[in-house]
Design a binder for these strands. Structure first.
Length: 568
RNA sequence: CGGGGUGUAGCGCAGUUUGGCUAGCGCGCCUGCCUUGGGAGCAGGAGGUCGAAGGUUCAAAUCCUUUCACCCCGACCA
């Protein structure tokens, strides 16, 4: 491809509405343009990257035994009523009506369609297992789309669904996908980590996320420095410690604490450390209030709380509700003598000289001893794990890093096949529900995640495997007859060798071309200049290295080929 | 949905507080000259319903009302 024929509108300045680096660089490099909030147009260069990513995904899915299909984007309401998700999905679903006023949605995911399909055409255990996938646009009307391609409302996703006769079969399918996913991200040249994850709204009982590591990532993950444990903090477990043998502790005492509201205030006015404070949060569900206790230096993990309450919708109680339930304002709430169901984090039971609110205005309690002065309904794991915490599986310590979720695999079990009554006959002739798994990869998200991980001050640094082109040829001065001749000759010969090559044939000054070259991040750059040409050489620069090297004209083709296969 | 902010040329912005001539600047774009190893220089030029609608006024980018879009923080999430 010649640049003069390419739709390639690079920008010198950053678009003002882009916040994260991938969004800025995708815009500046002329790879995407915004069409509406969270909805983007892919320009030629961007689309080439997406095709590369899709192709790697496709190859590995096929290799793992997957079969590609095309499920519809527009899906009828009836399908979603069967699983109950027409109601459950809420405002996040793009809904539309046809001319007969029938309800449809733009598919946010495809469990319903695929389950119906398989139910209709697969009736025997002899036809299982099946791994069915597709790569297509998905639609989710996000509350707040942001970060460019990282959180769009229309995005490209690969989703595969596995159908097995039993949970042993599911285990095998799940394993296959786990391996295939690892292969995919390895091939893409991305640094990633697999973590245990919460199963969330999709349901199921085991789940892993594939995280591309990047400091700007939205997800916090922890991993053990000694064993293989790693998990999303949403899911990461924290252990209850040994309970210290209780000896003699001073009795509880009430003290006056005017203007003390936050943990920070308590620390300041009483001279204690945050880890001595019991933070009491009042949560309400539809029908009940709870007092949730967590150490003052910790964060509550609402997901863990919600899971403990069987997925109940819960929210922090507003001030007036707290007053009504407790009789004191938010800053003075505590567990002692409280007439609410109390749920305490494991760590609470090991506290000895604790401080908490007294449930009376501007009063706090000191010398509080959990178990003696109050007894929670349950001690459970409620806090967010942090770096430095002990590993739940060994003696190691947990490290904390950030990542971008690019893949997620779930064991669904029979959740959907039961809801939609999708079954087959087993070898004994009995009706049996399909045991399912679902496996997603965010194709368009990977394009952004790769940039978050692979960029420098000057622009994108694409890994070879997903770069829009493998080689960029830059003649310093295209008007120089000799340079032009060599540039075109090298261009033609590389094409002959099957190399994906872009030629910057613009009549621009060298600086402009170099800036654009760095910006769009093509891995290998061949610079054709008069100095090196005099020696029969051209300059070869790897985008990820600072220095370039001289290569003789005869050796170019060989060098390029070996570099491509080395880094691909 | 709650809180905050921004809409002026393709991109980045000034001008709005305190209404006033033909609405400006940088970059990009077009023409010519010149230049060609890290976003050159000179000369000329094109490009605007000042987000939209309504109102106040002799006069509105500027004041008032309504509305739309986008961005940030929060609740949500692959």
């Amino acid at each position: 491809m010649k640049i003069t024929q390419l739709l390639f509108p690079t920008l010198r300045e950053e678009p003002s509405d882009a916040e994260v680096i991938s969004h800025k660089l995708l815009m500046r490099a002329g790879m995407i343009r915004r069409t509406a909030g969270g909805i983007y147009t892919y320009l030629p260069l961007g689309l080439r990257v997406l095709k590369k990513i899709s192709q790697i995904v496709r190859e590995e899915m096929d290799r793992a035994g997957g079969q590609e299909v095309g499920l519809p984007t527009v899906q009828p309401r009836e399908l979603w009523d069967m699983s109950g998700r027409w109601q459950l999905y809420g405002d996040e679903m793009f809904r539309l009506k046809d001319r007969h006023q029938r309800d449809f949605c733009l598919g946010p995911t495809h469990e319903e369609v695929i389950t119906t399909l398989i139910d209709g055409d697969v009736h025997s255990y002899r036809d299982l297992p099946l791994l069915i996938y597709q790569i297509k646009d998905k639609f989710r009307d996000e509350i707040r789309p942001r970060y460019g391609l990282l959180r769009g409302r229309e995005f490209i996703m690969k989703d595969l669904y596995s159908f097995d006769v039993d949970s042993d079969g599911l285990e095998i399918s799940y394993r296959k996908m786990y391996e295939a996913y690892s292969k995919i991200f390895e091939r893409m040249g991305l640094t990633f980590r697999v973590v245990e994850a919460d199963t969330g709204a999709i349901g199921g009982n085991e789940s892993h996320e594939f995280m591309v590591l990047a400091g700007s990532g939205e997800s916090k993950i922890v991993f053990c420095d000694t064993c293989h444990y790693s998990a999303n903090v949403e899911k990461a477990e924290s252990l209850p410690q040994e309970k210290p043998s209780v000896l003699d502790f001073p009795s509880i005492e009430m003290i006056s604490t005017p203007d003390v509201r936050t943990v920070e205030d308590v620390v300041k006015s009483l001279g204690v450390s945050p880890s001595q404070v019991i933070k009491t949060l009042i949560y309400v569900t539809d029908d009940q209030g709870y007092a949730v206790l967590i150490r003052g230096d910790r964060e509550l993990n609402e997901l863990k709380l919600s899971n403990y309450l069987q997925g109940a919708e819960l929210a922090l109680a507003p001030e007036n509700v707290v007053k009504e339930l407790v009789g004191a304002s938010i800053g003075s709430v505590g567990p002692v003598g409280l007439n609410l169901k109390i749920l305490a984090d494991f760590e609470i039971q090991n506290m000895t000289e604790a401080v908490c609110g007294a449930n009376q205005e501007s009063q706090h309690l000191i010398h509080v001893l959990p178990g003696r002065d109050f007894v929670p309904h349950a001690y459970i794991d409620l806090r967010n794990v942090q770096g430095g915490d002990p590993c739940p599986h060994c003696k190691g310590l947990l490290n904390e890093i950030r990542g971008i979720e690019v893949g997620h695999i779930f064991k669904l079990g029979t959740k959907y096949s039961q809801a939609m009554d999708a079954w087959f006959l087993d070898e004994k002739g009995n009706k049996s529900h399909f045991v399912m798994g679902c496996y997603g990869i965010g194709v368009s998200r990977i394009m952004a995640a790769a940039i978050e991980q692979k960029h420098d001050q000057n622009g994108i640094v694409w890994p070879m495997a997903i770069a829009p082109f493998q080689v960029l040829i830059v003649p310093v001065n295209i008007k120089d007859e000799e340079q032009a001749r060599h540039a075109f000759a090298i261009y033609e010969s590389l094409i002959q060798n099957g190399v994906e090559v872009l030629l910057d044939d613009r009549e621009e000054r060298a600086g402009v071309k170099f800036k654009d070259a760095d910006l769009i991040g093509i891995p290998l750059r061949l610079t054709i200049g008069s100095r090196a040409l005099k020696e029969g050489k051209v300059e070869l620069k790897k985008r990820w290295e600072a220095e370039s090297e001289l290569v003789s004209l005869e050796e170019i083709a060989g060098q390029i080929s070996s570099l491509i296969s080395q880094y691909n």
